[in-house]
């Protein structure tokens, strides 16, 4: 009989994940229920102070702003990514297109954010354009507000939405669309009734890939945002640094983790249900 080496094969990954994923999250969890040290760090004494500090209208507002930015950015990203992914999947030169989607990653993330500041700034490209079109003579401030933050998030996370959508749409049997057309469906109807339901898993993956990172975003609101767009990531950073309140920073992270976990849980439950329906369908058609 052959020996089963499965455990050994997965060992490196298990060690990696526990060292760099499970343990850090455990530390964040533990820190969130410890007492703060006013000079930084924590005192090893149980305390729920940071969670009671979170139950306060300001933090609820900051959470709402953060979720709002993440939701709107995700929605716009998906709407933009779907046609791109569809076109890529149908195109014969999709390897080149795929490469083009990945090219921005060759440039450092921060540099690309600064590039947006050059585009949206008062001396920037957009202002030059509207001045050239004669719309205004006074420079317009596009930066430093919540919409600028949303625009740059959409830009930054668009590839993360396009890639999973592309991989799903590519596997889609386009013959089904022709069949739908043959049976009298309009072009739009065949796309919305046949294709969209079939690529649902890709859409959900794309939503997760954009929504979750935007929820914890820090650099973009810091650089692009103004006085109306303080996100939770900024508050976390502040409390780790000059605020010297590590338990509060941890508690906010815990809240963010819970929001994302609930989202993931819903996704997996939905996924299971979908698979069950699928199996049933196969049984019936046999």
């Amino acid at each position: 009989m052959k020996k089963n080496y499965g455990t050994w094969y997965t060992l490196p990954l298990a060690v990696w994940i526990s060292l760099f994923f499970v343990i850090p999250i455990a530390i964040v969890l533990i820190y969130s229920v410890l007492t703060r040290d006013y000079t930084g760090g924590v005192i090893w004494k149980f305390s729920l102070d940071s969670f009671s500090a979170l139950a306060n209208s300001s933090f609820i507002r900051a959470t709402a702003t953060t979720v709002f930015i993440a939701l709107v950015s995700t929605a716009i990203t998906i709407v933009l990514a779907l046609p791109v992914a569809y076109y890529m999947a149908r195109s014969r030169s999709n390897t080149i297109l795929l490469l083009l989607v990945v090219v921005p990653f060759w440039v450092n993330f921060l540099i690309r954010v600064y590039a947006w500041m050059a585009v949206l700034g008062q001396e920037g490209f957009l202002n030059d354009l509207i001045r050239w079109m004669g719309l205004t003579n006074e420079p317009v401030t596009f930066l430093f507000n919540i919409w600028a933050v949303i625009i740059v998030h959409v830009y930054a996370y668009l590839p993360y939405a396009i890639l999973p959508l592309f991989t799903t749409i590519e596997k889609f049997d386009f013959g089904l669309l022709e069949a739908a057309r043959d049976l009298g469906a309009s072009h739009v109807k065949s796309l919305t009734k046949i294709m969209l339901p079939n690529v649902q898993s890709g859409i959900i993956t794309a939503v997760l890939f954009t929504f979750i990172p935007i929820l914890g975003s820090y650099a973009i609101p810091d650089l692009i945002g103004g006085t109306d767009s303080t996100m939770l990531g900024t508050i976390v950073a502040l409390n780790l640094r000059t605020g010297n309140n590590w338990p509060l920073a941890s508690a906010i992270s815990v809240v963010l983790t819970i929001i994302t976990s609930v989202g993931l849980l819903l996704y997996f439950l939905y996924n299971q249900r979908l698979e069950k329906v699928h199996l049933q369908f196969q049984e019936e058609t046999k």
Binding site: N108, F109, L110, P159, Y160, L163, P164, T167, Y218
Partner: peptide, 14 residues
């Protein structure tokens, strides 16, 4: 997709 993203994440947010 996770794999692709993981590779890409390497160049992200610092």
């Amino acid at each position: 997709s996770l794999l692709v993203a993981a590779l890409l994440l390497a160049s992200c947010d610092q």
